[in-house]
């Protein structure tokens, strides 16, 4: 469960959001500059709420009035960043296993689980390739695998299919859906592609200004 009721402020941008997400996949649709990415960053803990409250799985994680702010590393959130943000000094499999290692899973086990995830997303063959050598689509698949690995308590996907070629989209989309159902957590997908959200999400929130 994700519940955001408050003002998200990043630089000169400011917008009030009121969003409740149960164990479902909610799509956020809107034009550039409507604050979709900013609200994901707020939920992840990368920028604090200016006003209001944020709850993740019934835990109050951000409430400026009550001086509560849970650090991002304590929130256990899986996230696909718009530009993927793969660590450039790591291979694809090192990237995918990173969240598990951060949460105490032994390296060998984490690498094994990451290999399975990369296999599912069709990028097992580039597991040992350094991140900067990956194509846009490969990089995005690794980023998705990295966000869904382990047991995140919520999943945030910012334009998760933008770099995936048309032919592979359905397969990647199905794998994302399968994992989200397996995890049984709240998921928010941000996109400016309405059709994409229709395919992937159970509900769509329109944030067109």
């Amino acid at each position: 469960m994700i519940s955001v009721h408050g003002i998200v402020e990043v630089g000169t941008f400011s917008r009030e959001f009121s969003l409740d997400v149960g164990n479902e996949i909610v799509g956020m649709f809107g034009a550039n500059g409507s604050g979709k990415t900013s609200v994901l960053r707020t939920i992840a803990g990368l920028c604090p709420l200016a006003q209001g409250e944020l709850r993740v799985n019934d835990e109050l994680t951000d409430a400026p009035a009550k001086n509560i702010f849970v650090l991002p590393e304590m929130r256990n959130i899986g996230m696909v960043f718009q530009d993927h943000s793969l660590f450039p000094f790591m291979t694809a499999i090192e990237n995918a296993s990173f969240p598990l290692q951060m949460r105490g899973v032994k390296r060998a086990t984490a690498v094994k689980m990451a290999a399975e995830m990369l296999e599912q997303f069709g990028v097992a063959h580039i597991a040992q390739h350094m991140a900067p050598t990956l194509s846009g689509g490969q990089s995005q698949r690794v980023a998705i695998a990295r966000a869904l690995i382990g047991s995140p308590s919520a999943v945030l996907l910012d334009e998760p299919l933008s770099a995936i070629d048309e032919e592979s989209r359905e397969s990647v989309r199905n794998h994302i859906r399968e994992h989200l159902v397996r995890l049984g957590v709240s998921a928010i997908v941000v996109s400016h592609d309405r059709a994409e959200l229709d395919h992937l999400c159970t509900r769509i929130e329109n944030y067109t200004r």
């Binding site: 590393e73 450039p88 951060m102």
Partner: peptide, 27 residues
């Protein structure tokens, strides 16, 4: 700093972010 932000979301603490992410980038 986006790499350190990504690492934080993945559960890396201050020190881990510094050692595992910032230092390799700074090499």
């Amino acid at each position: 700093t986006k790499y350190e932000e990504a690492a934080a979301v993945m559960g890396a603490t201050d020190i881990t972010r510094f050692v595992r992410v910032a230092l390799p980038l700074l090499k």
